[in-house]
Nucleic acid binder design. Structure first.
Lengths: 335, 335
DNA sequence: AGAATCTAGTAAACCGATTTACTTAACCTG
DNA sequence: CAGGTTAAGTAAATCGGTTTACTAGATTCT
């Protein structure tokens, strides 16, 4: 491959001239410019990215750290970030943590070690103080989707409280008073907020008449299946509706309930959260709170790049994206 | 950040000594080694990746080029490649083409331009001779999932012919004789092979008694919806079963058929392909040929790295991964 | 004792761009 | 025509590793 020196020689000028001409820091008369352009074309010159990065001290690459890539939610998020990165001429280095905390910490080092200029961090489990500390000193990064308590970096979430509220109001308005909230172990901020909103929504309609039970767990298929099995085994006196706070939980619940005598929504109503997968094709189609996942990815990068000057971030600087309730057929009045 | 020079000074040796010690090309007595180790620890030294790459002439990064990231199929593929790359200490640069041919060509330049050491190429549309030519001179790369005719690089596909065969045999054995094959425009190798296998499977059971129609199109939702609408509007005399050759097509078909009077599998049987999404939760659960997508990703990287010596590849060097038929409830005898 | 070998390193040339500070020649101005 | 300005560049340092070829001193061999 031709390098800058080759081009300079072919054009009869010096390296510096070519470099500065290409970067626009030097105005050249038409003849010289043409000589350089011709040499570049003839030699098929392309700047060596590693030399460039070493010299400039930046990589024009950003890292995206996600728990998993293969779930529809994160896949969509990744796609959105990639699109946005590409449109800004940045490369995207993708890293999956599979929720191993030591991996999360390792990947945060990518910034300081110079691999990437910035990092978008997405986690899926309860925050850990050491991680927050590490985030604070990691360099330019933003936290997306799930909060990391104690991290003073720009944050971008969907409006979980509002999502919970919409679900709660909808179930209460459909007549439900005794409901089960599934997912989002207490320490997870997203879960806590969804719960708060959910309770607020229900009470706004039915005041003190509501009884909300909680099935703690993460957002996984398995947690959904387990909640479903536990629900089935309770017999009479069980709640009349379930708010499942992720697509995976909905799927797990559908699987478990599908194996039982219980019918949705005749015996139990269900409201989901995320609405990224093809929930409209399930039997019955799932009523769910839809997260604006593409926007989450798109604005995450904007937030990262605009925040890069590292203004000492105020203790809390969250951006919330609005959510919507998509009504389908998994909700009916209680039996 | 501390650099090699700082470490050398702190340890009282030269840069070369530290570098060679770290790379194992120099044996040192315990005292010197300890001095270096201590200095590294104290200064928190981490090699600068750009300097390293410039010097070594490689990036320890590979690129993955896919049509789209957000579909379950590609998301799973990406996840598998990432896992494998990570376990080998490689970074993954992710690029989505969204099926814009000029993008595909651009991304192939990443190798020659030195951005990455190798590239896994996945396309989703009919091959184009210019692209094949470009692949041949692009450097270390492999083609996965969909063939690019004319490219003489290592290739990895699932066994599309066998997948078609399993579907065809299954439908014929269920009594179907008049069927519709949806997807895989003719020039696409995956589609052609699925069709060949499909025909072979049906004829093996029903010989000359079979009538196979084709609905051409790509593997998209929209093509599925269209095929579904066309199917519905035909009234009597329409095929009794449909082989939809991607998850997206299945979803499109389900959507269209769901809006009609037709019931699956009472009025029409459906066999899908891919089986990556939650097809078991659809109404009714979808019988489908399952692709081993994770293996596709995993072996893709292996193929790339093992093939890197660039042995002048024989005109055809394909690896095929076995597929399986997952029987659920979208197939029944014809009405 | 002199030669050969081994140990423990090192100086300096890369890799290929970027950038600062400087030069040279031409041109203008009063 | 001295002095200043502008145009059109350039030499050389820098980014931070890697690697080759080499050396000074110690040990072993004959």
């Amino acid at each position: 491959m031709a390098n800058l020196h080759d081009v300079a020689k072919a054009a009869g000028v010096s390296k510096a001239t070519v470099s500065r001409y290409l970067n626009g820091s030097l105005q050249l008369p038409a003849r010289t410019a043409k000589a350089i352009d011709d040499a570049i074309k003839r030699l098929e010159y392309v700047p060596n990215p590693h030399a460039r990065r070493l010299s400039l001290g930046r990589s024009d690459t950003i890292a995206l750290v996600v728990p998993d890539i293969s779930t529809p939610f994160f896949a969509t998020l990744v796609a959105a970030v990639e699109t946005e990165a590409d449109s800004r001429g940045l490369s995207l280095a993708l890293h999956a943590t599979l929720n191993r905390p030591e991996r999360e910490a390792t990947y945060l080092d990518l910034i300081r070690q110079g691999h990437v200029d910035g990092l978008i961090f997405v986690t899926n489990h309860v925050a850990n103080p050491a991680l927050a500390e590490k985030l604070n000193s990691a360099g330019p990064c933003v936290v997306v989707d799930e909060d990391v308590v104690g991290a003073h970096v720009p944050k971008l979430f969907c409006d979980n409280e509002q999502g919970g509220y919409l679900a709660g109001r909808h179930l209460a308005e459909s007549g439900h008073r005794h409901v089960l909230f599934v997912g989002g172990v207490d320490q997870m901020v997203s879960g806590a907020r969804r719960y708060q909103g959910f309770e607020r929504g229900m009470r706004e309609v039915a005041a003190d008449d509501v009884l909300i039970e909680r099935s703690r767990g993460d957002y996984s298929f398995e947690a959904g299946r387990e909640a479903g099995r536990a629900f089935i085994s309770r017999g009479r006196g069980r709640p009349t509706a379930i708010f499942a706070t992720s697509d995976e939980l909905v799927i797990g619940l559908y699987e478990a309930l599908g194996d039982s005598e219980l019918s949705i929504p005749r015996d139990v109503s269900i409201v989901g959260f995320d609405d990224v997968g093809p929930l409209h094709l399930f039997a019955p189609p799932v009523t769910a709170v839809r997260q604006p996942v593409r926007d989450l990815g798109k604005y995450a990068l904007a937030l990262l790049l605009d925040a890069e000057p590292m203004t000492p971030a105020p203790p809390s600087n969250e951006t919330l994206l609005p959510v919507t309730l998509i009504e389908r057929q998994s909700v009916a009045p209680p039996p």
